[in-house]
Write a protein that binds this DNA or RNA. Sequence first.
DNA 1: ATCCCTTCTTTTCCGTCGTCAATAAAAGAA
DNA 2: TTCTTTTATTGACGACGGAAAAGAAGGGAT
Lengths: 390, 390
Amino acid sequence: MRSIPRTESFPAHTPAVSQVFTIVLSHGPLTRLEVARRAGLSAAAVTKAVRPLMEAGYLAEGADEDAPPALGRPANLVRVDGGRALFIGVKVTGDEIIGVLTDLCCRIRVARHVPLTDHDPKAVLASIADLTQELRTEADDFGVQVLGLGLAVSGDVDRGEGVVRYSPFLEWRDVRLAELAAMTTGLPVTVDNDVRALTVAEQWFGTGAGLTDFAVVTVGAGIGCGLVVHGQVVAGAHGVAGEIGHVVVDPAGPRCHCGNRGCVEAIAGDAAILARVREVIGVQVADTAEALALAHRGDAGAREVYARAGDAIGRGIATVANLLGPERVIISGEGLAAYDLFAEQIRDSFAEAAFGSAARCDVLTRPLPFDEWARGAAATAIQSFIRSDT
Amino acid sequence: MRSIPRTESFPAHTPAVSQVFTIVLSHGPLTRLEVARRAGLSAAAVTKAVRPLMEAGYLAEGADEDAPPALGRPANLVRVDGGRALFIGVKVTGDEIIGVLTDLCCRIRVARHVPLTDHDPKAVLASIADLTQELRTEADDFGVQVLGLGLAVSGDVDRGEGVVRYSPFLEWRDVRLAELAAMTTGLPVTVDNDVRALTVAEQWFGTGAGLTDFAVVTVGAGIGCGLVVHGQVVAGAHGVAGEIGHVVVDPAGPRCHCGNRGCVEAIAGDAAILARVREVIGVQVADTAEALALAHRGDAGAREVYARAGDAIGRGIATVANLLGPERVIISGEGLAAYDLFAEQIRDSFAEAAFGSAARCDVLTRPLPFDEWARGAAATAIQSFIRSDT
DNA sequence: ATCCCTTCTTTTCCGTCGTCAATAAAAGAA
DNA sequence: TTCTTTTATTGACGACGGAAAAGAAGGGAT
């Protein structure tokens, strides 16, 4: 990721500084002593680590808020000054580009999306550049600089090299996206797989904060999965990991575009559900929304299809739990609109197929706003920024 | 693991020392410069790290052997002096206890096994103590001290606490095995799950050396799986991980003792294969060996059963590969006696069910001598010893 | 033979990081 | 006011690892 651009860089002089900042970032305002405890450092080290970060404006002394009057010297909370820096996250899908402007705490300030018609890398790059420029103009209104750009693309992405190895939706192969985007925008660019980006957001700013082992499962057009093991996002030796969508749960099931039968995605993906509803009810069902409406109206056939999808997802999650024993599984994705239809079946099938203590893993759902994917991209940019000096 | 015993401890004063020793341990004799390169340290740091280890006798200057006469000062190879210390590894199964005496390089010096009749913790402990004592006597013949005892037990084991949470074969629940064994033997004791122990052996002394992401799959009475992700063995948040045996590959398959249908183990476990062969051929098939012989003799029915087992294993491995994208999968276990019957089917099914680049993962087999399980236990003891001072 | 060249190893010096222990600060309680 | 309690800071100190230069141990060239 030899980023040519010369922007401000993070004063992460030492490992302790990075560690302290990361802890404050993901665990809200904390006293220095508490930070020391969590980081396994001495209080002195925290004081020393905090100073340069406060001088640079990244950390601030927090308001005591509703401090229950305790004995002894009152604690001075340390928190991240979110407004200190802005980042842009962009998610590229087959038919649109979603961009968000976030602050250092990954809170969304502005969100935009533009349709995408041409999949040629040059055209996509131009769209990204336009959207980025637009968001940077917005940033100027806050009077704060944008310090990084994150791009999330589905498919096989090498984050370290900033290369999209293969993206089926865009029909890209070996596109050096980070380099190209850095050239046109002049920003440091991070490129990552979309599900992994979402997982990073969850790990640093969401429900996965503080956990060393968890999984994020996304339900929508495809079924994806991001994994965090030993506190790090799993990328796979060949750049592919978390392909829960192509775990086979029923060898007698419907054929999947990957060539196999009964993949989770071939049963619970949007297209699969729609196809199956049509098969059961008739071709007059126009789209996913209509299928959903049918099921909500109580149509037995449609409900059955959704239940089967829930079963497949539940089994898929159980497989992840059996293999990795995560602390938590976070289910998310656009498909959650139909969550009330899946929910029970997911839980039942998970409980049934999970082995022993693996079933103790806690499964929760998080609705996914449409711009959350882009926020994930921003999270990777923030991550890269913080680590840039390491 | 508050180990009461007072034995010699490893001089791992600094992280660099540990790292250097680990590298030399698993990558054979190396020049100091090569070690520096692999560890990301300076040559000076390696020299400094090596000195105390050589003074303590753990490292030695290696013979140049077949040094191809190169330019410049000839290299001084550094290697681990295996004979410097001995370790004992014990694997406890339902019906016997296998013990090995290994050196610091985890090479087996002596192997013993004794039958086990009584599953009561006290009785098992007594057997372990006897076997340990016997092996320590052997160790005296070498004039070297035994510095640690590793115990491998199947089931849910908490290595950190040294507790066997639940072992189905032994019918144990929450047995504080490390503590008990330390008391009776006076040695530092490490207790771990058997498959994880085998994985540690593979990671440090076997085909997994140097890899940061790989899986070990054991085929036998049960189907197990040890995972290494980000260079660490996966233990799971609740102590359970790698349960590939209970991944469902065919919901219409035979019922498994875990309550589900079509688990890998319910199709490819020894008992499952035997049951199925009987079903196909007749009850006169006495045991696994006979089933195997039948298949080897070319009986179509038996061969079919083995092929189906291979298919289940291949699909299971593909699931692991899809989720984690390991660099390599090592197939091992007693069941490998039948490997020629599985092999093709495993590979075919794996290739078919693996998604995208996940299929690039290299699948290899390693025959598993009967005392390899105990060697795994010894490996965990060595690991604990080396980290004891960290 | 002698000198040079190459490569591996060691030494010496030095900067940095984080801990320790002592001290300061900021309250409430006596 | 003074004491107690808890949090934060300071400064001395020690340890670790890097940089650079010197040393060591050959082979090859003249």
